[in-house]
Design a protein around this nucleic acid. Structure first.
Lengths: 168, 168
DNA sequence: GTAGCAACCGGACCGACGGTCCGCTTATTG
DNA sequence: CAATAAGCGGACCGTCGGTCCGGTTGCTAC
């Protein structure tokens, strides 16, 4: 059982980390920032979450009932999958980028599952990875930065998914 | 005119950096490592190359007559382009990953040019970016890590490029 | 209520890193 | 050979992720 003060600190840290990452991006957020913003000592962060990656993972887990849904979602067509994942990524871009930079993709567990299911729809494991590569936070942020609109990217992603499915 | 000792040091630093990055990957190579390995002081690295990104850029520029060729290559079909760029990336994976991590893609100058030319062949700017995303060093390293062979990836990339071209 | 204990806390501390600075050295030129 | 500017190296700095430990506090058993 977690002590009451510990639970309070965990919640404060998660909230602080989520806000800071959302507004500044992971690169501009240090652990000290998060600790100070949550009003706790630095040691507390590491006792709760182990390391920076653990904190980010916890943030991600906490901010989304929809998170694991988005990755392991049931879908009929590749286009449907692409559209839904895109919306999810776009809505939490800084968080997605943070987790991409800190965790190893293959460790996600249901990531493999998603790849396999997707592979069946788009014809090959390679194509599944290709589609997921285009849906990465950093890729989408880059395209937005290049001046593409979210709608254009969304349409492109779905079109790509459909094209890949069509070849099956 | 560059002094003789300066030129010697520049060459030694480039060689040391190239070797270290190739064998360890950029993440395990610090500026101090490069300086020590080249037998010069740390300050010399920064006077020559400005910062870490500058050093990596210089390494990349020096190691490839084929480098800018690969990116701005003339090509007839998207598949041809994909195959050639893949071979180039695969041959210098750690270097490619290093430059991806340090430089901003859009600054590359002829990157824009490549995107535009490619866009004409694969139907849209979005598709051009998608193809390039799949050809990034980190993506290819990830797929290799997943157990895919280089041949499989090469085939996948070319097939993807051809599929995109076919829809035009 | 209170005593005792384990869990918890915070911030001083550490090593590594990218980057700066400056007093000394050395290649170059006339 | 003398003068000078370019170059040199490594001590130094601020920041970051991560560790440690002496003091504190929430919980429980009596």
């Amino acid at each position: 059982m977690e002590r009451a003060d510990a639970a309070r600190n965990r919640a404060a840290l998660l909230a602080a980390a989520t806000d800071l990452i959302r507004e500044r991006g992971i690169d501009a957020v240090s652990i000290d920032d998060v600790a100070a913003s949550a009003g706790v000592g630095k040691g507390t962060v590491f006792r709760r979450f182990g390391d920076k990656a653990g904190l980010i993972q916890a943030v991600v887990d906490s901010t989304a009932a929809s998170w694991h849904q988005a990755a392991s979602l049931e879908f009929r067509t590749a286009g449907e999958f692409a559209g839904q994942l895109f919306d999810h990524v776009l809505a939490s871009l800084p968080l997605v980028i943070a987790v991409e930079r800190t965790s190893v993709r293959s460790c996600e567990g249901n990531f493999q599952l998603t790849v396999d299911r997707l592979a069946r729809v788009v014809g090959s494991t390679f194509n599944a990875h290709a589609l997921l590569a285009v849906l990465r936070g950093e890729q989408i942020a880059f395209l937005l930065d290049q001046g593409m609109t979210a709608d254009e990217i969304r349409a492109g992603v779905i079109s790509l998914a459909d094209t890949l499915s069509a070849g099956v």
